[in-house]
Nucleic acid binder design. Structure first.
Lengths: 167, 167
DNA sequence: GTCTTTTAGTTGGACGTCCAACTATTTTAC
DNA sequence: GTAAAATAGTTGGACGTCCAACTAAAAGAC
């Protein structure tokens, strides 16, 4: 078993180099965005390691949860895409795989013949519940952030997302 | 032109629902990690939109910058992987594409015949400089975060990354 | 000094994301 | 009312990431 992590913080190092090269003004933004990229990788692999035994990915888990929370248990593909802020093709992809695993079903939209409704199945609901229990227990209740940091992160990123037009 | 963004914050909504379902204890962690995922998408697409005209991606830009900052302009593939915290296959992939574009070159390692050195070319250096100028001007100097938020984000994520063993 | 284990890199395949292009509807404009 | 524009989904392709399996070489164990 080898330690593949560097012995120093690459982001702190990059910030230092940015300063040395006369880019001090953008060093903070560089560090912020780069931190985001790294942290995302870590967070994703944490979450995926919990979901993997259940045979789904985080992308598909998000689709399932959207359906679970949707009362009727159905949503048009387009709504799923706009809620998750991903392209229609990503929704097609996720729904294809969920449907193959019998976790959702495609239904024709009753009033708009262009649209497709996605309906969660009973086993889809069971799997979503199971996944949520595990995620809560193994990841979300101890995300590697103090409650204070978790709150601070959400606040900062909410402003960031709002500024970027995410909602 | 259509507005594809939801009119409410899906993360605030998810937090509310987590509370309603008796998962209040993990709601903060869920919101923090989910925010990270969303913000990452936004940050990445910002950066990639600047790099796209130059014909590279952020992953390849990171490899180039590592080489630019490495004095000799050469690094073993394995070092690139451990600095960027990506798998060897991702390095192979990035270096393949950079090499095809004549931005780097593969050289045999002088003392370890298993290893491969990656060397940046002159045009690789020029492109990296150009990319950095543009990123600094168009993204990093105005990342959609106040300087205070940028600083706070880096601090929080540094603790998060450290906790996860990122460095 | 062998024999075993670890390391470096590659290939092939799975998956998610995006974009471009396309079909089929629906909505808007006039 | 009909022509033009917008919308819903799909397919095919590019790209980055990971994993499993593999070859070659170096390092460790005895």
């Amino acid at each position: 078993m080898t330690d593949t992590s560097p012995s120093f913080d690459p982001i702190a190092e990059a910030t230092r180099l940015w300063g040395e090269h006369g880019w001090a003004e953008s060093a903070g933004g560089m560090a912020a965005l780069t931190s985001l990229m790294r942290a995302h990788q870590l967070a994703l692999s944490l979450v995926e390691s919990v979901l993997k035994p259940l045979g789904i990915t985080f992308a598909r888990y998000e689709v399932l949860m959207l359906l679970v929370f949707s009362q009727r248990g159905t949503l048009p593909m387009s709504v799923i895409g706009s809620r998750l802020q991903v392209h229609a093709t990503s929704v097609t992809n996720a729904v294809d795989r969920l449907e193959r695993a019998d976790l959702v079903r495609r239904l024709p939209h009753p009033s708009d013949r262009r649209a497709t409704l996605v309906e969660i199945t009973d086993s889809g609901r069971r799997l979503a519940d199971d996944a949520t229990d595990r995620l809560n227990a193994e990841v979300f209740s101890q995300p590697g952030l103090s409650p204070r940091d978790a709150r601070g992160l959400v606040e900062i990123l909410t402003r960031f997302r709002q500024d970027a037009g995410d909602f």
